[in-house]
Simulated scan of single mutants.
Amino acid sequence: MLLEEFEHSPAVIEPFGHGQVEEFGVCDTLIFSFNGDIVDRVRQMPESREGGYLKSLNGRHPWYLLEKDGLEVAVMLAGIGAPLAVGHLEELKSSGFKNFIILGSCGVLDSSIEADKILLPETALRDEGTSYHYAPASDEISYEPALLLTMERALDTAGIEHVRTKTWTTDAFYRETADKVKRRLAAGARVVDMEASAIMAWAQFRSAKVYQFFYTADYVDHHKNEWDARHEERTADCMSFFEVALAIAKGL
């Protein structure tokens, strides 16, 4: 099968020196947020300034440098979907960023998980295509345990509750059928996302330091075969999740 053709050899196009990047300033740690409201609010802070941007046919993809409480981080909007997210991470790493703190919402498969909870994806079911170009074919993939421990220590120090979880990473959110959800639950996944397994594979392939967490959002109800957005339950300000990212950055 095509997805079993993983090769560890260099590609015809490598990101090193070939990415369309305009660099005005980088720092060690980049916060890669799938939540656009977080990035917009950081951009409006008086301590924030544009640090550079990636370029594509979609236009400019800027990052912003923020200095707060003696800590400097970059903040950038993460493109939704594994190919775009990993493609940007490739170019950002080649630009000089060393640590990547990645945050975004995830769907819930297990209704016992309440909204706005902090989850650390340690393992993912690979139901997307990007990861198979960065790691040999398998059903599951994981983050480096040492990186998870570093993130957990930072969260513990900050007094932030969190739990580890297995996620189901899929490319097709409109094809999350009730039977698929039941099978993914049986395989141990409690949440669903669109990028984690690909980011895990990329991190292993490039020896990148990635610290990813989710905050829980909607519920995929396989019992009633319906989707529950859980809007009334999701009461946390999005910047509370940015503060979680800053707590991790302080612990690196």
Score class of each variant (00 low, 15 high):
residue 146 A to H: 12
residue 113 I to M: 06
residue 110 D to Q: 11
residue 141 I to E: 00
residue 163 V to I: 13
residue 162 H to I: 06
residue 164 R to E: 08
residue 113 I to N: 02
residue 147 L to S: 11
residue 156 D to R: 14
residue 154 A to D: 00
residue 118 I to H: 02
residue 158 A to D: 01
residue 116 D to T: 12
residue 137 A to K: 06
residue 143 Y to Q: 09
residue 128 E to L: 03
residue 136 P to N: 05
residue 169 T to G: 03
residue 140 E to T: 15
residue 142 S to T: 15
residue 138 S to T: 08
residue 164 R to Q: 10
residue 110 D to N: 15
residue 131 S to K: 02
residue 161 E to M: 10
residue 122 E to K: 11
residue 119 L to G: 05
residue 135 A to K: 04
residue 146 A to E: 14
residue 111 S to H: 14
residue 155 L to K: 07
residue 146 A to I: 15
residue 113 I to R: 04
residue 124 A to P: 01
residue 119 L to S: 04
residue 128 E to H: 02
residue 154 A to T: 05
residue 155 L to P: 03
residue 127 D to A: 05
residue 162 H to Y: 12
residue 169 T to R: 02
residue 140 E to W: 07
residue 123 T to W: 07
residue 126 R to M: 06
residue 120 L to S: 05
residue 119 L to A: 07
residue 153 R to K: 15
residue 155 L to T: 08
residue 145 P to G: 10
residue 157 T to Q: 12
residue 152 E to V: 10
residue 111 S to E: 13
residue 121 P to Q: 08
residue 167 T to M: 04
residue 164 R to L: 05
residue 148 L to P: 04
residue 166 K to W: 04
residue 118 I to K: 02
residue 142 S to E: 11
residue 140 E to K: 12
residue 140 E to A: 07
residue 155 L to G: 01
residue 147 L to E: 06
residue 163 V to L: 12
residue 121 P to Y: 09
residue 116 D to W: 09
residue 138 S to R: 09
residue 114 E to L: 14
residue 154 A to R: 00
residue 129 G to H: 04
residue 121 P to H: 11
residue 129 G to L: 05
residue 135 A to Y: 09
residue 155 L to Y: 09
residue 127 D to K: 03
residue 150 T to K: 15
residue 125 L to H: 01
residue 132 Y to R: 00
residue 153 R to F: 13
residue 147 L to N: 09
residue 122 E to T: 14
residue 142 S to Y: 08
residue 152 E to T: 11
residue 136 P to C: 06
residue 155 L to N: 01
residue 161 E to T: 14
residue 132 Y to I: 03
residue 114 E to N: 14
residue 142 S to V: 11
residue 129 G to T: 09
residue 117 K to H: 13
residue 159 G to Q: 07
residue 116 D to I: 13
residue 121 P to G: 09
residue 138 S to N: 10
residue 139 D to T: 10
residue 114 E to A: 15
residue 136 P to L: 07
residue 160 I to D: 00
residue 113 I to W: 06
residue 131 S to W: 02
residue 122 E to G: 04
residue 153 R to D: 10
residue 161 E to W: 08
residue 139 D to K: 12
residue 133 H to W: 01
residue 150 T to F: 08
residue 113 I to C: 07
residue 124 A to V: 10
residue 163 V to W: 06
residue 116 D to P: 06
residue 125 L to D: 00
residue 126 R to C: 04
residue 130 T to C: 06
residue 165 T to E: 00
residue 152 E to L: 09
residue 120 L to K: 02
residue 137 A to L: 08
residue 125 L to G: 00
residue 164 R to N: 09
residue 127 D to Q: 04
residue 120 L to V: 15
residue 168 W to D: 00
residue 156 D to A: 15
residue 168 W to M: 05
residue 139 D to R: 13
residue 133 H to F: 10
residue 115 A to L: 11
